[in-house]
Simulated assay, not measured.
Amino acid sequence: MEGLLDFVLRDILTRVGGVQRCVSEFIRITDTLLPERVFERLVPELRHGSQTRSGVPVRPQLLGSDPICLADNAARLASMGPNGVDLNFGCPSPVVNRHRGGAALLDEPELLFKIVSAVRRAVPAQQPVSAKMRLGLKDDSRAEACALAIEAAGASELVVHARTKVDGYRPPAYWERVGDIRQVVKLPLVANGEIWTAADAQACRLASGCHTLMLGRGIVANPGLALEILAAQSPHGALEAGAGSSAVMVLPWEQLLPLIADFWGLVGLHLRRDQQTGRLKQWLNLLRRVYPQAQLAFEAVKTFHHPADVDAWLAKQRGGLEFCIAGAMSQ
């Protein structure tokens, strides 16, 4: 999720808990063998055992269409000790697709086979090579063929975003089509798309037959979502019927606000000054889908363009929170 789930937000979200692994934003591969410093700039977790500060593994993701160049870059990346290498066949961005990247390749199962085969040969056997795809480009008629090509090429895992490129991010997600793919491939399958609540997770698992789920915008809007999904599971790993209402918040706003402040601190350290306020507005915009308090916060900061204004606003919010907590303790 380019421009959203970068290493800064990965750091913050994995502190909450419930996430077993992250996949990085895509690293665009054209005709160049990237130096290690570029991989480290985009996935700085590579300098720390390929893990977030909370110890959650991070798998870098490559995007491109040239099997040889992707393989060369995958080999260099693998030498840096990542938690495997992931391949992007799902990005719906028109700019990416015009340059034969992401979902644009889903009309060419033969090319998917060549890419995954080349990368699999280039990466040591003990390191996983996984892939993410959508159901197709304009329609889902070749979804099974693409999945079979990725499996035959030696991928160790496949994530399926249950929409086509043309569908974009419009609901619904067609989880049952992931179930169709599951009937024809034997490699581990992960379902993705339109999972906003624990109830959505339950419905996705039932429709797709997949136990493992990938969360995207849903966990950005509700940082406690993974914990909600886990809390809704029975001891046998199944989701309890009716569990996981979006009204049940594992992570209260009072616990989220300090994480927002930490996020802002990291944004100040790692992003250009002209990008900083926009990143906070972007996250608050998604958070208000779940948190009424985020609506008020978004309204307060949407006109800010100077980091100092955000600093002052956050200091006021945290001061008010500390006052409320102290008052509650004194009762």
Rank of each mutant, 00 (worst) to 15 (best):
R217Q: 07
I229Q: 07
N222A: 15
V185Q: 09
L187M: 14
P188R: 01
I181T: 10
G209K: 03
V220M: 12
V178P: 07
G216K: 00
E240I: 10
C210S: 10
L225Q: 11
A241Q: 04
A201M: 02
G193Q: 05
P188K: 02
R205L: 00
G237L: 13
H211D: 15
P188N: 02
A226M: 13
R182G: 14
N222S: 15
A238D: 14
C210F: 05
G216S: 13
G209V: 00
V190D: 08
P223G: 07
Q233I: 09
G193C: 08
L187N: 05
C204W: 03
Q202Y: 10
A247G: 02
G244S: 05
H236A: 14
G218F: 05
A247Q: 14
A241T: 09
L225G: 13
Q183Y: 01
A226I: 15
A191T: 11
K186Q: 11
P188L: 05
P188T: 04
G209F: 05
H211C: 05
A201D: 02
A207K: 08
A226K: 11
L227A: 13
I195E: 06
A201H: 02
C210H: 04
E240L: 14
G244L: 07
L206S: 12
P223Y: 05
V185G: 09
N222T: 14
I219E: 09
Q183F: 00
L225I: 15
W175Y: 13
G237Q: 11
